[in-house]
């Protein structure tokens, strides 16, 4: 039974169920799934604590107001939902290095952290440049 659980659900089934959640979301709240604007708003929220007048004058943050909105909570929810899923199927564990990475690039956590950070910068820049 444990091995079946470890394989997880069929991606077709989980994907289709996600589609149904998307439909219900559009129906009841008019919201489509997205995540990247949340990172921008969060950056704005942090900067607002340090230099509020600057944020209120920046065109970008006038348009993308730094606030906790539907999508912000959606992103937080994804994290909670994922933890619930892994905890309920007893596969939750802390891990600094993914196996695939470790096999290819070794045991350095610093190296992994740096590459992940650079990857994150490239990914979010691309996502925002494309507008979503």
């Amino acid at each position: 039974m444990k091995t079946i659980l470890d394989k997880g659900w069929s991606p077709y089934l989980a994907g289709a169920l996600s589609g149904i959640i998307l439909i219900l979301s559009v129906w009841f709240t008019g919201k489509y799934f997205g995540a990247s604007t949340t990172f921008v708003r969060s950056a704005g929220l942090i900067e607002k604590m340090l230099n509020a007048p600057r944020i209120s004058k920046m065109d970008y943050f006038v348009k993308k107001v730094p606030k906790i909105d539907w999508q912000w909570m959606f992103v937080v929810g994804i994290l909670i939902g994922a933890v619930l899923a892994s905890a309920s199927s007893r596969i939750f564990r802390w891990k600094a290095l993914p196996d695939m990475w470790e096999a290819r690039f070794g045991h350095s956590r610093v190296k992994r952290g740096m590459v992940a950070f650079i990857g994150g910068v490239v990914a979010i820049f691309g996502a925002r440049l494309a507008g979503g």
Binding site: P11, S25, T29, K31, W70, V75, I78, G81, A82, L84
Partner: peptide
Amino acid sequence: EQLYGLITGILFGFLLQRAQVVRYDKQLG
């Protein structure tokens, strides 16, 4: 609105994890 966002996120996150698509190995794979 925020409550709806949280609930939708929890459901979506649950499915992402159960299908294992949030895993590093699946993403890089």
